[in-house]
Design a protein around this nucleic acid. Structure first.
Length: 466
RNA sequence: GGCGGCGUGGCCGAGUGGUUGAGGCAGGGGCCUGCAAAGCCCUUUACCCGGGUUCGAUUCCCGGCGCCGCCUCCA
């Protein structure tokens, strides 16, 4: 069974499923006010792999990830661009899904939008007021953090030390600086919804509580997001659930930062790096491989060099797929149940078991991947030694394990149709057959100049794109 | 000020109280190849510093140095 680090207990512990055989996950999605950056890509990939692995383990997985389509940043950005907030959000949501598709991230089973849940949020805020844990002041409704037992659990910091660090807030009417807004009363020009406290809009933290409980029910298995969401976002989600007396997430999982030049990547630091730029640069699978080569809780450094290294590793996997004519064992949208099918004679069961053991250990993708690369070497070595059956089985195992990680291998050589290239290849084969090697070399030079990789095999000249 | 993380070979990045230091990338040598490419084999004096615990620490403890993060919107 999968063991994962749980932020709430600061321990690696088994994912204790609410219902055996089924896993329910809620992962905080993006606020759609700008194009996604590398950090968004990482969290999406990390939880995509977690999800795929759970599916591969034979579990029935329900994966929910939201879209925050109304908040200060959306409104501000829309104002700058002179468009309606809703239109802006729709536009960046499209950008988001395009990037996710490029990365091979599976669509969530449910994608709740904050704007579609406002009425439910109003109900919840009303319930919190009724229970006496929330209070109304002139600019909105706030949750009283002091009324919540165990506030600070996720931050792993007691309430008083959190408060000691809090800066003076603009809203001085708050009872405590840590109290957070549940309902923001409308300011001119902002989108609004009706409520008992007048027109306004919900605070950020409420949507995830309402939507996760609505779609997954109480006591769902796992709540995830990037490390920066621990405090205050997840802390405040939990606070509301506790205040409501609802059983909330049983396991909290957070992934580490993407750093650029050693620093956290963020817009305010000016080192923001666009995910689209990276994806346009080369094979999107390289970023997945780069992300998976580090443990999900470690920071990863993204530089042209580390991306290049990932691309080289990917090329090694693809080369194996080419050598063994491995068709993609699955489409990107198709998680594969490798782990549970222990009777599959076409795979190296021991290698699969090692893979599972590593993945079960807090999603040790670097370890799992190292095993996959060992198999690559084994398969090639076996083939070199003439043990074709063993080699093919090992190679198939590579393809299947890579597929569990969401990395389809490109083993299919796309047919070359360019008559000029075909002519050069044919002339080169002829030259080699007649041992006119100077001519053959010249023809290879020409093919390389046209951007092809040239490989000679027993069956003649082969060309492919790099 | 409070809380937390990290410091491994040219680079990325796992991991462990003790014979043989994952894996990838890069470099070197070799095999194969007409030559290449790909592949395979071999290879390049790793664990920030100082104490401590221990028969033995890179791996545990303490201190120091350095880097990073959270405490405020943030993936």
């Amino acid at each position: 069974m999968l063991r994962l680090y749980d932020t709430a207990t600061a321990k690696v512990r088994p994912l204790a499923l609410r219902r055996p055989g089924a896993a329910s996950l809620y992962v905080c999605g993006p606020t759609v006010y700008d194009a996604p950056h590398l950090g968004h890509g990482r969290f999406a990939l990390v939880f995509d792999v977690l999800r795929r692995y759970l599916v591969a383990s034979g579990l029935e997985v329900t994966y929910v990830s939201n879209i925050t389509d109304v908040d200060d940043k959306v409104i501000e950005r829309a104002r700058q661009e002179g468009v309606e907030p809703g239109e802006l959000a729709r536009r960046y949501e499209e950008t988001w899904w395009a990037a996710m598709d490029a990365l091979g991230v599976l669509r969530p089973d449910h994608v709740p939008h904050a704007t579609a849940y406002v009425a439910r949020m109003v109900e919840v805020v009303g319930e919190l007021v009724q229970r006496g844990v929330a209070y109304e002041i002139p600019d909105g409704v706030y949750l009283s953090t002091e009324a919540v037992p165990g506030y600070g659990l996720l931050a792993r910091q007691p309430l008083d030390t959190l408060r000691a660090g809090a800066r003076v807030e603009a809203v001085e009417a708050k009872r405590s600086p840590l109290d957070f807004v549940l309902w923001k009363k409308a300011k001119p020009g902002e989108p609004t919804w009706p409520s008992p406290w007048g027109p306004g809009r919900p605070g950020w933290h409420t949507e995830c509580v309402v939507m996760s409980l609505d779609l997954l029910g109480e006591g769902f298995d796992l709540h995830g997001g990037a490390i920066d969401l621990i405090f205050p976002h997840h802390e405040n989600e939990r606070a509301q659930a506790v205040a409501l007396g609802r059983d909330f997430a049983h396991h909290w999982v957070h992934n580490g930062w993407v750093t650029v030049a050693g620093e956290k990547m963020s817009k305010s630091l000016g080192n923001f790096t666009s995910l689209d730029d990276l994806l346009a640069r080369g094979d999107p699978r390289a970023y997945r491989l780069l992300v998976l080569r580090a443990h999900y809780r470690s920071p990863i450094e993204v530089t042209p060099e580390t991306v290049g290294q990932a691309e080289a590793g990917l090329a090694r996997l693809d080369e194996l797929a080419r050598r063994f004519h491995l068709a993609d064992p699955l489409a990107v949208g198709d998680p594969v149940a490798v782990v549970g099918e222990a009777d599959d004679e076409d795979l190296d069961r021991e290698a699969v078991a090692r893979f599972v053991e590593r993945m079960d250990d807090d999603l040790d993708t670097p370890g799992a991947l190292s095993g996959v690369f060992e198999l690559v070497r084994e398969a090639n070595a076996a083939a070199d030694a003439g043990r074709a059956t063993d080699a093919a089985r090992t190679a198939r195992t590579v393809a299947h394990l890579a597929a569990v990680l969401g990395l389809p291998l490109r083993g299919v050589r796309s047919a070359v149709e360019d008559p000029e290239v075909l002519d050069l290849v044919a002339r080169r084969d002829a030259a080699r057959a007649e041992r006119r090697f100077a001519d053959a070399d010249a023809l290879r030079t020409e093919l390389v100049r046209l951007g092809w990789v040239v490989e000679d095999g027993p069956e003649g000249t082969r060309v492919r794109r790099p």
